[in-house]
Amino acid sequence: MLTLENIDAGYGPTTILQDVSLDVKEGEIVTIVGANGAGKTTTLRTIVGQIKPRAGKISFMGEDITRLPAHEVVDRGIILVPEGRQLFPDMTVRENLQMGTYRKAARDNQEQRLEEVLSLFPRVRERLDQNASSLSGGEQQMVAIARGMMAKPRILMFDEPSLGLAPIVVSQVFDVVRQIAATGTTVLIVEQNVFTTLKVAHRGYVLENGRVVLADTSEALLKNDHVRRAYLGI
């Protein structure tokens, strides 16, 4: 469904990703794990077109999307729930969710989908008319995910959904991710929280210094010596 082939990318003269290849199949949950600064966020930003790769090719459903501007990538249903939530602070929660439906394919039946999405997030319903900035970190994360769901994603990508959240909230967030995946939505998730993520995902890629050093099923990665040493301190 989504394929990256030999991607090189970075900011300005700084190269971050080197020769990154990965693919996500329809209905899969795939994770990219790695340390801070390994290039996980850069990978996602390159996929959505916010960073233009220097080399390599990205395709989605057979179409080459390497050079498309971000809004056109999003228009094709590639939705990113960004790191640090990135809500619109001076808009209400409802307006934030409405912004989720900006992409053309998501504009009709807004009310109905709002109901569907809110059924996943009962807490968000109570907050609909509050300003997004008045919410707690966990609530904001839920709104960010709900906003992503509003866009009728064909693939939903999460960038560090557990970042800065209390452990109890983290498990709630992962519950939601599981529920979303259960509806058949394809998910690509980037996390530092290696174990929890690998437990949720089917397959995983390990990124170090901007390179894919390992790619395997989650089970195999959980048993891998290198993963255990590098990400568990074992």
Binding site: G12, P13, T14, T15, I16, G37, N209
Partner: peptide, 11 residues
């Protein structure tokens, strides 16, 4: 070298 050209490790 100009600092902006370094890799993350270099920085």
């Amino acid at each position: 070298a100009e600092a902006r050209g370094l890799t993350i490790g270099g920085l």
